[in-house]
Design a binder for these strands. Structure first.
Length: 932
RNA sequence: GCCCGGGUGGCGAAAUUGGUAUACGCGCAAGACUUAAAAUUUUGUAGCCGUAAGGCUGUGUGGGUUCGAUUCCCACCCCGGGCACCA
């Protein structure tokens, strides 16, 4: 009895299953599970008025596939979705339509949700967050207050783009070639009172943790011998310990301080450009003279070691790594000496190599890891694309150098340089035009007008313009000013030039035109002397570390953002809004226009602005700046874990259960800012005990943009937007999902092609029709099925969806050729396809195979390794580097046999001819290469 | 300009560690089915020479290492993303 053939019609099955899934709550996530957790996260969208285009869901499809895959593999999955809705687009829309942005945001969110729902995602919508919801931004404000309490938020006058005609501040986006996009007036820089977050305090941790190992434990160890001295500076340092083991004598190498009687393992600070192993190796060579030690392993990542006042009177936090080496040489006596005469180097037994005798407070951790190899295995802490890590390293831009003072007229010009050794080649000094000393020198100079004119010009340039190396150099000498080069006491002139930026280093450079290209160009243009530079050591400066990373200007003079929850009291100064009064809700205003003074529209609402001081109950005013859009997105992944908690940002138990995010998918354009901001907030929350992991996202994956069919970015402006609703209507959600994953490598940017999508639809229909072939198993099918399980499983794990689908297509093509396929084999194909095409697989699974439980909660298939190896493999023969013949042979065959078979082939004989065989290379399982 | 990616058939792309370049899909061509068309299906499809067997060339360009390079190294050209108030 055959069932009547059913045509595949996605419109009949997709909404049906979406409703059933939602009703049966199979995607709901709970913390109280015995299963291992998996947290898949998308960068949440900004719901614009234009709705989603087909490019937006690409990343969401990927996390959907992975979360369905992990669920079928027995994991307890969290896959939430929410909306990021503060910021300029919503505000601009409000300005234009004179409506409250809250209304348009709600409309857009509803539209987005509708568009997402028809794609069949497995979101747990009960955990939805929205950054503009006061219940959400209460906690954004709370975090800000905590930062402010810790001194991480401070006030500063920072320039904004100011349009003098519109009397409003402009975003960088609204500035076009230095002019206001709306009215064309040249944009000026106007200093405004701003709140700034001290992200640079976290620069070192943000940098080192990129390469740190082990997610959960960076043990904190405290040196209890030397007490913490409150007055002394707190210095962070990344160091390497070298643990050198002599396998012949079973001894360890230590440094003993004869004067004070303490022992230590070899330790050294990681210098610029070095990795841990290099540093450790260098220290061993310098301290002991051994240069033939063999690297064994890094002992399980870093510790956070707190040394107090031992090192040059500093309170030091060392992020300490240990490297285990083995001694290879026969020499047993160290030849070099320690840094000073009180130190001696010696070999000790393991019994002496114990915490009690050694001063290294982190030694117990290293010892534990020496004894238990499992603990010493280094697992990377962040599985991130190397490109993103590199971008972040460059963004943070750590450089080690020296601060050197050039003095004159009772003033010191502090200069940061990474090359103090070039100081003897300095012929002049350049200050940024904004440098505070420039104003102070004004009285002394003879060309005041010229200098002022130049300053005005430079400050309105963008940073990109200023640092463009191709641009002709400009600058003005501060005539009459000379400063003394501290190295050779020479007098050098002082210039100002726009290529020196005020925010980097000290905003001043010592120019060595002989060695530096920019300085050279500058000197040539202004006929400044160029000296042949002799590089020699100069120790006249203070060693310092500088970062390119700047503190984060965290306020906006806008309406549509989280109000900064501070109050300015006439008597008490700045006071935080008490936690019980949070959230500070954004009040309704009549006009969303910024005030003519550049202040936020909130400043005009007297009823809201004027408050009583929470401390003294006296007259006070609210802060009227709002937070930037980045605020809400810097911590939203935490709220998904516990979205409705009224008492806490996140319940510690829930945080412990779900954190960290196992897979985070989003656009590469967020490589630096969003991801660094989120890491910064996370580390702060770690420090105040809100979260338990050092990093928020363990695995990160970029989505490649989907471009329009014309190769340009999809945009209303170009008229190349493809709407997913239309595609779903004509082809079905499953086809859209499969096509977007099949287009090409997930992280690659690819142009949309509606014409090509038909292939994905045909593939789905072929699977649909395969159900008509259920019957006896073909003996050849096993091998195909098991190879496909292996390939699809590995490809999903590696986020290579395009080749996973290709493998499924190949399997389908093969199975189609057969008389019949078994029910078991067909089930496996459906399961493998289920994460990609959830509706069609569920429909066939239920209506043809008569399963009661959803396919999406069924078990992922496993492959039999014996069924994925071939009996016979193809090998090719190259003669003189060219493929000339091929033969089939059993994979386990001996090299001799392979060689013999290959050389006996008539084709091979023909190509060898009379030439002598120099050698024959056999690569098992691949080829035989005959070299003539 | 600086930083980070990428460049393979007509098109989207594939290629474990350096080992048969072009899997899979789109398109195209020819055949089957059909009164016809669509759909479906079969076969072919990198370029050049050749009836064919076969040969030569070929992964942005030029060079290098190697028995062997899409893969590694050097130089260059082109395209995309980011550059701190777009998200």
């Amino acid at each position: 009895m055959k069932k009547a053939k059913q045509e595949y019609d996605p419109s009949k099955i997709e909404t049906k299953w979406q409703k059933k899934w939602s009703k049966s709550k199979i995607y709901k996530s709970k913390e109280d599970s015995e299963k291992e957790k998996f947290y898949a996260l998308d960068m949440f969208p900004y719901p614009s008025g234009e709705g989603l285009h087909v490019g937006h869901p690409k990343g969401f499809i990927a996390t959907d596939i992975v979360s369905r895959f992990e669920r079928m593999n027995g994991k307890n999955v969290l896959h939430p979705m929410g909306f990021d809705a503060f910021g300029l687009p919503a505000e601009n829309y409000a300005l234009k339509t004179k409506t409250n942005p809250a209304d348009s945001v709600q409309k857009n969110v509803d539209r987005y949700k509708g568009q997402l729902e028809i794609l069949g995602f497995d979101y747990d919508w009960s955990r939805e967050v929205n950054t503009t919801d006061p219940k959400y931004y209460k906690w954004t404000q709370w975090i800000f207050i905590e930062m402010w309490k810790k001194g991480l938020a401070y006030e500063s006058y920072e320039p904004i783009n100011w349009c003098p005609s519109c009397k409003t501040g402009l975003a960088n986006e609204d500035v076009e070639n230095g002019r206001c996009e709306r009215c064309g007036t040249p944009v000026e820089k106007k200093p405004m009172r701003q709140w700034v977050l001290g992200i640079t305090k976290y620069a070192d941790r943000l940098l080192t943790d990129l390469d740190a190992t082990e997610q959960y434990v960076r043990p904190k160890v405290v040196d209890r011998v030397n007490p913490h001295k409150p007055g002394k500076p707190l210095v962070e340092r990344t160091v390497a310990h070298a643990i050198v083991y002599d396998p012949k004598n079973k001894k360890y190498l230590i440094i003993r301080n004869k004067k004070f009687g303490w022992d230590t393992v070899i330790i050294g600070g990681i210098e610029q450009g070095e990795d841990v192993v290099t540093t450790a190796r260098r220290e061993v060579r310098e301290e002991t003279g051994y240069d033939d030690i063999e690297f064994v392993k890094i002992l399980g990542g870093q510790t956070e070691a707190h040394y107090y006042t031992k090192h040059k009177g500093e309170n030091r936090i060392a992020y300490a790594n240990a490297v285990l080496f083995e001694l290879k040489s026969d020499r047993r006596i160290p030849i070099a000496d320690g840094e000073d005469k009180d130190n001696e180097i010696l070999w000790v037994d393991k019994e002496d190599f114990v915490p009690g005798k050694m001063v290294n407070s982190e030694l117990p951790v290293w010892l534990e890891r020496l004894n238990d190899p499992r603990k010493a295995d280094v697992k990377p802490f962040l599985y991130w694309p190397e490109a993103i890590k590199e971008s972040q390293r460059n963004w943070i831009g750590r450089s080690e150098g020296a601060l050197i003072k050039f003095s004159g007229y009772g003033k010191d010009i502090e200069i940061f340089t990474t090359r103090p050794d070039t100081i003897f080649g300095v012929t002049y000094v350049v200050l940024a035009p904004e440098h505070p000393l420039v104003t102070q020198f004004m009285g002394e100079i003879s060309n005041k007008d010229e200098v002022e004119k130049y300053i005005n010009r430079a400050k309105n340039e963008t940073e990109i313009e200023r640092t463009d190396a191709k641009k002709e150099k400009t600058g003005v000498e501060l005539k009459g000013i000379k400063v003394i080069n501290p190295a050779n006491k020479e007098e050098v002139p002082v210039w100002i030039a726009d290529y020196v930026l005020p925010d980097y280093g000290t905003g001043a450079v010592m120019a060595v035109p002989d060695l530096d290209e920019r300085d050279g160009e500058f000197a040539k243009k202004f006929n400044l002397p160029i000296k042949n530079t002799e590089v020699k050591e100069y120790n006249g400066g203070t060693k310092v570390v500088k970062y390119k990373l700047r503190d984060w200007v965290f306020s906006r003079q806008r309406y549509w953002g989280e109000p900064i929850p501070l109050i300015h009291c006439e008597k008490c100064g700045v006071v935080a809004v008490p936690e019980k009064d949070l959230p500070v809700v954004l009040p309704k205003v009549k006009s969303y226009e910024p005030t003519g003074t550049g202040e936020s529209p909130l400043a005009a609402i007297e009823k809201w602005v004027n408050v009583k001081c929470p401390t003294c109950k006296g007259k006070a005013k609210r802060e009227t700046n709002t937070m930037p859009q980045w605020a809400g997105s810097s911590w939203y992944y935490l709220r998904y874990m516990d979205p409705k908690n009224k008492k806490k940002l996140v319940d510690p138990k829930k945080e412990k259960f779900w954190a960290p995010v196992d897979l985070y998918v989003g656009g590469a354009e967020h490589a630096t800012r969003h991801l660094i901001y989120a890491r910064f907030w996370h580390k702060f929350l770690y420090d105040i005990g809100v979260v338990t992991t050092l990093e928020p996202f363990t695995k990160l994956q970029n989505v490649g943009l989907i471009m329009g069919e014309d190769g340009r970015k999809m945009s209303k402006r170009f008229g190349n937007v493809v709407n997913p609703d239309e595609i779903v209507k004509t082809y079905g959600a499953d086809t859209l999902r499969v096509y977007e994953m099949f287009m090409g490598p997930f992280d690659q940017q690819i142009s949309w092609s509606t014409a090509s999508m038909i292939g994905s639809r045909r593939f789905i229909e072929r699977v649909w029709k395969l159900s008509e072939k259920i019957g006896k198993s073909d003996p050849l099918a096993d091998r195909i099925i098991h190879k496909t399980i292996k390939k699809v499983t590995a490809d999903i794990q590696n986020l290579r969806f395009n080749t996973a689908i290709s493998a499924l297509m190949i399997a389908t093509n093969e199975l189609e050729k057969m008389e019949a396929i078994s029910k078991e084999h067909f089930e496996i194909i459906l399961k493998l396809l289920a994460p990609f095409a959830p509706h069609i697989t569920e429909e066939v699974w239920s209506s043809v195979l008569k399963n009661k439980k959803s396919i999406h909660v069924s078990d992922w298939p496993h492959f039999d390794p014996s069924l994925v190896v071939e009996d016979e493999i193809n090998m090719v023969v190259q003669v003189g580097g060219r493929v000339r013949a091929s033969f089939r042979i059993a994979p386990g065959e001996s090299e001799e046999k392979i060689k013999e078979t290959a050389l006996a082939l008539p084709e091979v004989k023909k190509w060898i001819g009379d030439s002598a065989i120099k050698k024959v290379i056999v690569v098992k399982g691949k080829l035989v290469s005959v070299v003539l």
